[in-house]
């Protein structure tokens, strides 16, 4: 039996709906105002600037805790996305299924390279190793220039129990 490829709109709709499901249900992601851009399987987290994110009003600079939180959110979203990608592409992610279970952070180390300016910030994560139980993720964040990172982080995560 020959199968025609699915129409592009169907694929896009399914991917965006899955991503939305992953992100929309987490109050803290909404609290910080983080949005996730998608191109194919590549995700970019966006943190639009807001006054409430300031940690040092004299400079001013984004709070180090906000930077850490933004990096951790990006790492968890990327890891969950990578975890469900295959099932989603195979149409095995049930629209009515309960929420997608998220990995739990074991530890997270943030390297602050320069102060975060009062501008939008972007972040991308890379899953360096993802086993059945543990995963290691690296994540970078920048503002105006992609090559001028203002922070990076590495974290270890406990994967949710999976069937099979």
């Amino acid at each position: 039996m020959s199968r025609r490829p699915e129409p592009v709109q169907v694929i896009k709709q399914r991917r965006d709906a899955t991503l939305q499901k992953l992100v929309a249900g987490v109050p803290y992601i909404q609290f910080l105002g983080i949005q996730i851009d998608r191109r194919g399987d590549e995700l970019t987290a966006v943190l639009p600037y807001a006054d409430k994110l300031i940690g040092n009003p004299m400079l001013p600079a984004i709070h180090g805790g906000v930077t850490a939180a933004f990096l951790e959110v990006t790492a968890i979203v990327e890891l969950s996305w990578a975890m469900i990608w295959e099932d989603m592409e195979a149409g095995r992610v049930d629209e009515d299924a309960p929420r997608i279970q998220l990995p739990k952070t074991i530890d997270f180390t943030v390297d602050y390279l320069r102060s975060g300016l009062p501008r939008d910030a972007y972040a991308r994560a890379r899953v360096n190793r993802s086993g059945r139980r543990y995963a290691s993720v690296h994540v970078e964040t920048w503002q105006d220039n992609r090559s001028r990172l203002f922070a990076q982080a590495t974290g270890h995560f406990l994967m949710p129990p999976r069937d099979g």
């Binding site: 803290y28 805790g65 939180a69 959110v73 943030v110």
Partner: peptide, 18 residues
């Protein structure tokens, strides 16, 4: 507002970091 896992109501690690 700071919940990271709506299933359990546990605060997000990021807020603890802050």
């Amino acid at each position: 507002r700071l919940v990271g896992d709506p299933e359990t109501g546990v605060i997000h690690g990021g807020a603890v970091s802050a």
